[in-house]
Amino acid sequence: MELTTAAPRRRNAVRDADGMAVASFILGLVGLLVFNVFLGPIAIALAAVALHRGTTRRGRAFLGLGLGAADLLVLAVFMSADHTMSWSFGS
C-alpha cells in the first residue's frame, strides 16, 4: 500500500494554477488582435480560476484578467464603430 501526501498534490495544483495564469496573459494579449470574442472570455476565466487556486504568478493572472476585459472592450468599440458583429482593420 502506497501512502500519498498532500504536498505533491499541492505542488501540482499550484503549478497548474501558474500555467493558467500564464495562459490567461498570453490569450488576453493575442486576443487584442484576433478572435477577441473568444479569447477575451477564456482569458478572464483562466485568470479567475488561477487566482482562486492560489497561483504564485498573481501579476500575470491580473494582467490576463485585464487584457481579457480589454479584449471585450476593443470588440465593443469596433462593433459600435461599424455597427456589425465583427470588426476588421480594412474598410
Rank of each mutant, 00 (worst) to 15 (best):
A7L: 13
V22E: 11
M1D: 08
L65P: 05
G90N: 13
V22T: 08
A48I: 03
L75Y: 14
L63V: 13
G64S: 15
D71Q: 08
F89I: 13
V74S: 11
A43M: 03
R60P: 05
G59R: 13
A17S: 10
M20E: 11
L3T: 09
A70V: 14
A45F: 10
R60A: 07
S80N: 11
G19V: 04
R57N: 15
L46E: 04
A70R: 11
T55V: 08
F78W: 06
D82P: 03
A13T: 09
A47V: 08
V30L: 09
A7H: 06
M79H: 11
L32P: 08
T56N: 14
F89G: 15
D71E: 05
H83L: 10
R60W: 12
F78M: 15
L39Y: 03
L39W: 00
G40H: 05
G40Y: 06
A21G: 07
A61Y: 01
P8G: 01
N12C: 01
A7R: 09
G28K: 06
A6Q: 08
H52P: 00
L75N: 10
V37L: 10
A48N: 01
P41R: 09
V30N: 02
D18T: 08
I26E: 10
V14D: 05
L51C: 13
V14Q: 07
A61D: 01
V30D: 01
L3I: 04
D71S: 14
R53M: 07
R53I: 00
P41S: 12
E2S: 14
R11E: 09
L32H: 07
G64P: 13
F78Q: 12
S88N: 15
R10F: 02
D82Q: 15
L51V: 05
I44F: 03
A43Q: 06
L51M: 14
R60S: 06
S24N: 04
L65N: 03
G66S: 10
G59M: 07
R57G: 08
G31A: 00
L39P: 00
N36T: 04
R60M: 14
I42G: 03
F35M: 10
F62H: 15
G19D: 12
H52C: 04
P41Y: 03
A69F: 15
